[in-house]
Computed example of a mutant assay.
Amino acid sequence: MTRYWQEPAYTHGQEPRTGILLVNLGTPAAATADALRPYLKQFLSDPRVVEIPRLIWWPILNGIILRTRPAKSAAKYASVWTNDGSPLKVHTEKQAKLLAGFLTHAGQPDLQVSWAMRYGQPSIRKQLDALRSSGCTRILVVPLYPQFAASTTATVIDEVADSLRHWRNLPEVRYVRSFGDDPGYIAALAQSVRDHWKKEGQADRLVLSFHGIPRRSLDLGDPYHCECHKTARLLREALQLPPERMIVSFQSRFGKAEWLTPYTQPTLEKLARDKAAASVDVMCPGFVSDCLETLEEINMECREAFLHAGGQRFSYIPCLNERQDWIEALTSLSLRHLGHWLDESPLNGSERTLQAERARSMGALT
């Protein structure tokens, strides 16, 4: 195998471009067991996602999980699938298009905006190659995970680095590590809650459900748990809610090991059984796009569990998706991280020659 991939065609004097790559977790190509199998294999083979030694994990993954889980997951995906594909893919693509439009309105029409999935298609590798072919020599990678975790943001950075290992002519690369405390993001979350309250009324409790990770990850130094609680605190302060009105919980537990607690569904069931809350508003500030975990796990499974346990009203507050205040926040976030790249306008050949001649003249004078 060739170590370096072939470089795209290049014309001398070609102007360099700057690209932005939005990256989300991933999605299968269809809501079928056949489509879920390769997607789950790619996802669950990532050593940052499952930190079990391969010698132990590989037989479990290939001998049990990939034989039983695809059909079960396919049924869940089918319950939220749209005519345009998975909700996560639809929202991520729309966010990229809107970001490009907002950047143009902000005076940056030459920025190339693309999107990719860490697992599934379009892949990070494919989209990076497309940015390279369009002349991008500077790339800002924006993982769409508000809070940093090794199993999400870090694995995006791994995949970018692995892809660039095959490039001969490397670009400058920057990453947005996390944005769970970004003022624009917090403001958009708070306004989405206010909009919901104005329309539906305020429930007894506001429950924030973040995606879970193994407790062992926290013990080993992963900052995700702390970043989730910081997001929650900032949102509570923005909404001026007393601490007892907001609950932080974690969803999507996998396997028998302990994950971050409290778990979302048992928390909701207890609120209903103990008559501590007849009504709840539930939102997922760890996701910027609605997806299987929010639409099926929260708005279907957890809704049913809460009402079955005696709750009276369950209201789901959608993710930010294509809200204008969120796209404005994403635009501001991108511009800040692009920084001085935007201050350095590309020079055409004659301007570069003129500057070089001036520099030589100044050198001769000194």
Rank of each mutant, 00 (worst) to 15 (best):
L98E: 04
L239F: 10
L55K: 09
L111I: 15
P266E: 12
G26E: 00
R17H: 13
V207Q: 08
R205P: 01
R336K: 14
D34V: 08
Y10E: 15
Q42L: 10
Q127R: 15
P47N: 10
S315D: 15
S252G: 10
D195F: 04
S334Y: 06
L88P: 01
A277T: 00
Q240C: 09
F148H: 13
E328N: 14
V282R: 11
A31D: 14
G286C: 11
P171W: 07
E244D: 15
R233V: 05
A116H: 03
V176L: 05
P183W: 03
H211V: 02
E296N: 14
G363K: 13
H211L: 14
K97H: 13
R125K: 14
V142W: 02
E351I: 00
C319V: 04
I213H: 05
V142K: 01
W326D: 04
T18V: 12
A106N: 03
Q191N: 14
S279H: 09
P318S: 12
R233E: 15
E200Y: 10
R358F: 06
Q191R: 14
R54W: 13
L320W: 08
A154G: 14
I157S: 12
R360S: 11
P53V: 08
I157Y: 10
V282T: 04
S192N: 15
A277N: 02
L268M: 04
V141R: 08
W5L: 14
E304Y: 05
G135M: 03
R245S: 13
A238Y: 08
L241Y: 12
Y119R: 08
Q108C: 08
L21V: 06
C291Y: 02
V49W: 08
A359F: 05
G310L: 05
S332D: 15
Y185H: 11
